[in-house]
């Protein structure tokens, strides 16, 4: 594992910690898209089917369990926790996420590394992750004002994607047979979605001002 991959995993982990912190500390999930969070649950469950068949390392196994567990905990809080669910901005979270699930699955049936149950679900999870942030980004755009922790959450998620791209560039030059075009292309698409957010994030950071997205 190279430093970029590790940095990517850590920023991914930090983003989840920031989100859990926001929900637990403020007992509020305002500004957070339940649809994006539900998509992440599907992404992790579909991708980590290999938990039972392939052992990579203790690190990989632990991280997989953490990602599955934390995404389930977030969705549970937003749906079931009495105080938290009241703060969910349902009227701002109207993205039709079923289309994303359906589209990703059809794409996985067409484009995959191997036509096996696990590989189809792996490709599906890669495609779905690429678009899973969209309901959240649309929600931020709609509400305009972004609270600090929600802004940090999306920032760290974007940083995770950026580090993964550096990781692939590094692997491409250091590993003789590294060719993961499904993951790399989807990763590029996914990271591109964050470009706009990053632009406004850095402007607000430079001006030491509250993060605001244009309507």
């Amino acid at each position: 594992m190279n430093i970029f991959r590790f940095a990517g995993d850590m920023t991914h982990l930090i983003s989840i910690v920031v989100l859990l912190l926001k929900i637990y500390a403020t007992k509020s999930c305002s500004g957070i898209s339940l649809k994006t969070q539900e998509l992440y649950v599907i992404v992790f469950l579909a991708r980590y089917l290999d938990l039972f068949t392939d052992f990579i390392s203790v690190y990989n196994t632990v991280m997989k369990l953490v990602f599955i567990g934390s995404s389930l905990a977030i969705v549970w809080c937003m749906r079931m926790h009495r105080a938290v669910k009241r703060t969910y901005d349902k009227e701002l979270d109207t993205f039709r996420h079923y289309f994303l699930v359906l589209g990703s699955f059809v794409l996985a049936l067409l484009l995959h590394e191997k036509f096996t149950f696990q590989e189809i679900f792996w490709a599906f999870s890669i495609y779905l992750e690429a678009v899973a942030i969209l309901p959240q980004l649309v929600m931020l755009q709609r509400s305009g004002n972004v609270d600090n922790l929600t802004g940090q959450y999306v920032f760290f998620l974007g940083a995770y994607r950026a580090f993964y791209i550096l990781n692939w560039i590094y692997r491409f030059f250091t590993e003789p047979h590294f060719s993961r075009w499904i993951a790399c292309l989807s990763g590029l698409v996914q990271t591109a979605f964050y470009a706009d957010f990053f632009y406004y994030y850095f402007i607000s950071w430079k001006n030491n001002a509250k993060l605001q997205l244009p309507a």
């Binding site: 991708r47 290999d50 392939d54 990989n60 792996w122 993964y164 047979h177 993951a183």
Partner: peptide, 10 residues
């Protein structure tokens, strides 16, 4: 032949 490599990323 294509090598079978398990998915080693998260």
């Amino acid at each position: 032949a294509v090598e079978e490599v398990p998915h080693d990323e998260l």
